[in-house]
Design a protein around this nucleic acid. Structure first.
Lengths: 153, 153
DNA sequence: CTATAGTGATTAACAAGGCAATCAAATGCA
DNA sequence: TGCATTTGATTGCCTTGTTAATCACTATAG
C-alpha cells in the first residue's frame, strides 16, 4: 500500500478556504472596517460602541436584550460597553417601571452629537464604496446577506 | 420620481442599520458560526484555531505573516494562538534557515486527524446551507464577497 | 402566601481583538 | 565596516468575545 498523503481519503476533504463562506464574510468585512475604524478613532470610540449608538438612536428607548440582538453583541459584552458609554454621557439608562429587571436605554444629546460628527464621513465612505463596487452589486449583496441571516441551520 | 428616497434632517442622517454592510456581514456570519462553533466545541477548539488549522493544512509550511493574512488574524493574536496550538501538538514551528526572523508553521498528524474528525459534519453543514440558501445564490454571494475583498477604500 | 421556576441583567474567568512599543535579525547606505 | 532603517515576531495593556455562574426580580403552582 503506497501512502496517499494529499489525495482524497475516506473522510473526504474540505473546501478551499477561498470558497469558505465564514472566512469570505470575515475578509470582506475587514475591507470595510479598516477605514471605518480610522474614522471612529478620532472620537475614541470602538466599532462596537458605534453599533450600539446607532441602534439606540434608531430605536429610541430600547431594552438591552434587544440592543444585543440588533448590534450583534452578547449581553456580557454589552453590559460593559453600556456602563462605559453611560459614564461617558453618551447614553442614559433607566430601569423599567412595570418590570424592574429590564432597563431601557436611550441616546443623550452628547451621543447624538457624536453621530452627527461622523455622518458626513460615513456617507462619503458609503458613496465611495458604492462607486467602486457598483450600486447594483451592492444592493444584491445586501439582499443576499439579508436572506442568509434568516436561515436557521 | 416621488422625491428623495431618504429624507434628510438638518445635519443629515445615516442609513438604516438594516442596510449597513458591516452590520449585515456580521449578522449573516452569526448564522453560519452558531452551528460551526457547536461542532468545534466537541474538540475544545475555537473558530480562530480552526481557521489557522485549515490555512496551515492547505498551504503547507507557511510563515506567520501569511497565516495572519489568510486567516484574518492580527499577528499578536496569532502569536498567542500558535503558542497554544503548538503546546497542544496540533502544529509544528521551525525557524527559517535563510532568514532567522521568520518561522515556518506546518500541521502535525494530530492536527490532520482533528481536521478529519470534522470533515463529515462540516460538509454536511455546507450541504444543508446550499440546500436552504440555493446553490445559485451561494455562488453569487461568494463571488460578490471576493470582489468586495479586493476593494481598497 | 410560599416555594419554585423562569427571565433580564450582571459578574467572573479566560481567550481573543486591537494598538503601541519592543526585540532580534536582516538590509541599505555612508 | 559602522549604523540607521526595515521587517518578522513578540510582549504589554486594555477592550471585547465567550461560557458558566449568579443576582434581582417576576410569574406560576400548590
Amino acid at each position: 500500500m503506497t501512502g496517499k498523503q494529499h489525495q482524497e481519503r475516506p473522510g473526504g476533504t474540505l473546501r478551499s478556504t477561498h470558497r469558505s463562506l465564514p472566512i469570505a464574510l470575515l475578509r470582506a468585512r475587514e475591507t470595510l472596517m479598516e477605514p471605518l475604524r480610522e474614522m471612529l478613532s478620532d472620537s475614541q470610540i470602538s466599532e462596537q460602541k458605534w453599533r450600539v449608538l446607532r441602534v439606540v438612536e434608531e430605536d429610541g428607548p430600547i431594552e438591552q436584550t434587544m440592543i444585543a440582538e440588533r448590534a450583534c453583541l452578547l449581553l456580557p459584552s454589552l453590559t460593559r460597553i453600556l456602563r462605559a458609554m453611560e459614564t461617558d454621557g453618551l447614553l442614559l439608562r433607566q430601569t423599567g417601571t412595570e418590570d424592574r429587571r429590564k432597563s431601557f436605554v436611550s441616546i443623550s444629546d452628547k451621543g447624538r452629537m457624536l453621530i452627527q460628527r461622523h455622518i458626513a464621513k460615513s456617507n462619503d465612505l458609503f458613496a465611495e464604496l458604492e462607486r467602486k463596487f457598483g450600486r447594483e452589486d451592492m444592493n444584491q449583496l445586501l439582499d443576499l446577506l439579508e436572506k442568509l441571516q434568516k436561515i436557521r441551520l
